Computed example of a mutant assay.
Amino acid sequence: MYVKYKQLCKEGEFCPGDVFDYDYGGGHIYNLGTQVTWRTQAEIEYIEGSLDRMLYLAVCNDVKAIAMPAIGAGLGGLKWDDVKRCIERVASSYPMVDLYVVEAYQGENEQ
């Protein structure tokens, strides 16, 4: 997946707002284009566009549930509350897909 993703980026075929749908045979991994480069901040418009495309692809591929991290915040530099509202707004148009967002993760060794 990473090799193909890197190739798409290098060739300019994966841009902000895009989705790279990696079908590994047993499911899909959706890579969302939320930043121009890994060094730049995420843009809420890119998140909105890529989420909409991802959920559309999920419906087309009969994907019933998606788990995803809290995109756009952290290294993306956006406020999580703004991103969360965007996710909720876009997801409301796709009630046939259960979207699970892991807002915070606490591993076994973390307190």
Rank of each mutant, 00 (worst) to 15 (best):
V3M: 12
K4E: 13
Y5F: 11
L8R: 00
C9Y: 07
C9L: 14
E11K: 08
G12Q: 04
G12E: 01
G12M: 00
E13L: 13
F14N: 03
F14D: 01
P16L: 14
P16K: 13
V19W: 05
F20D: 05
D23P: 03
D23A: 01
G25T: 10
G25F: 13
H28E: 00
H28D: 01
I29S: 02
I29L: 06
Y30M: 02
Y30Q: 07
N31L: 13
G33P: 01
T34G: 11
T34M: 04
Q35F: 05
Q35V: 01
V36Y: 11
T37C: 00
R39S: 09
R39L: 10
R39F: 12
R39Y: 13
T40I: 11
Q41H: 12
E43S: 12
E43G: 10
E43F: 11
I47D: 05
E48T: 15
G49D: 00
G49K: 00
G49W: 05
S50C: 06
L51S: 04
D52R: 15
R53W: 09
L55T: 07
L57P: 01
A58K: 06
A58I: 09
V59Y: 06
V59T: 13
C60Y: 15
C60K: 15
C60H: 14
N61R: 06
D62Q: 15
V63N: 06
K64N: 02
K64E: 11
A65H: 12
A65R: 15
M68H: 05
M68F: 07
P69R: 13
A70G: 03
A70D: 00
G72Y: 02
G72F: 00
G72Q: 07
G74I: 00
L75Q: 03
L75H: 14
L75P: 04
K79N: 07
W80R: 13
D81C: 15
V83H: 06
R85Y: 14
R85E: 14
C86G: 03
C86L: 07
I87Q: 06
R89C: 07
R89N: 10
A91W: 07
S93G: 04
S93Y: 08
Y94K: 02
Y94S: 01
Y94G: 03
D98I: 10
L99H: 07
L99M: 05
Y100E: 11
Y100N: 03
Y100S: 04
V101G: 04
V102L: 07
E103Y: 08
A104L: 13
Y105K: 08
Y105M: 10
G107P: 10
E108C: 12
E110F: 11
Q111L: 15
